[in-house]
């Protein structure tokens, strides 16, 4: 029986999703305590983004159970899951390019919180201030740099008022300085009480934030635990990290 404690932000049991003969996720289970941060690593094609799609409801699971703060959300579509408090940032930023930065955040605040446009305004402004985009609020989102687009992904997710934030490789393609800035931002968001699940290849960024790490390979969870244990797990290192990385 699935555990339904509100102290568990996200609880998934046996998530399966296949595309034809290809099993994208196989029997994936995970549990994320409220207020904590979980990192997800794994080789390309391991099913990490598919797992996010299953959690957000963008893709429907073939089977499996899923609860958010004790509430069964398995039958919720993507929109209702957003309203229930799940927000995500996309691996490749997906701004509304014909609109301004502020309008991007405004849409997220108005629809993600089911508010009137007027009532949504302060939330949109706050989200932009939090990620440091307030000065570019009235700029077309299509003109933003990559770093700013990633910030906008975060701002839009925050504007929906999430309880659970899913980050998909936000540190990828960033310079060292930009990366530290994003890490700082994610820590602030976690410290404000938002539960975080973060897919990331840039391990040193991930390690500065997460409490636990889950490793996916070929759609299966092959390890889960505190970072120090995971990074020393020979099974994990052999398929993913390579010998040098553990010593670092």
């Amino acid at each position: 029986m699935i555990e339904t404690s509100p102290a568990t932000a996200l609880h998934a049991i046996g998530l399966n999703k296949s595309y034809g003969a290809l099993a994208a996720t196989r029997d994936v289970s995970l549990s994320v305590p409220a207020g904590s941060a979980l990192g997800i690593i794994g080789p390309n094609g391991a099913g990490k983004t598919t797992l996010f799609n299953l959690i957000t409801g963008a893709v429907r699971a073939d089977s499996g159970e899923i609860t958010l703060f004790g509430e069964d959300i398995a039958r919720f579509d993507a929109r209702r899951r957003c309203l229930a408090g799940i927000a995500r940032s996309f691996q490749v930023p997906q701004p509304f390019t014909g609109l301004t930065t502020y309008e991007n955040a405004l849409i997220a605040a108005a629809f993600g919180r089911a508010l009137s446009e007027k009532a949504a305004r302060p939330h949109a402004r706050e989200a932009l201030e939090r990620v440091g985009l307030a000065r570019k609020a009235d700029m077309p989102a299509g003109n933003l740099t990559l770093l700013d687009r990633k910030r906008l992904e975060l701002a839009r997710a925050l504007a929906t008022g999430p309880r659970l934030l899913l980050l998909d490789e936000i540190a990828g393609g960033m310079t060292e300085a930009e990366c530290s800035e994003l890490v700082e931002l994610v820590r602030e968001i976690r410290d404000a009480g938002v539960t975080i699940v973060w897919i990331e290849h840039v391990l040193h960024a991930l390690l500065k934030v997460v409490d636990r790490i889950l490793v996916l390979d070929f759609g299966k969870v092959i390890a889960e635990g505190p970072p120090e244990t995971i990074l020393r797990d020979p099974h994990v290192t052999s398929i993913y990290l390579g010998p040098e990385e553990i010593q670092a």
Binding site: T56, A58, A78, R79, C82, L83, A87, R88, F90, Q94, P95, F96, T97, G98, L99, E103, L106, I107, A108, A110, F111, G112, R113, A114, S116, E117, R156, A157, A159, T160
Partner: peptide
């Protein structure tokens, strides 16, 4: 200029993102 207009512009620019921020 109304709230449904925001949804229409979101839909025009990026349906995937629109769904993910709660647009029906």
């Amino acid at each position: 200029r109304s709230k449904p207009g925001l949804a229409l512009m979101a839909l025009r620019d990026n349906p995937t993102a629109a769904v993910s921020v709660g647009v029906n």
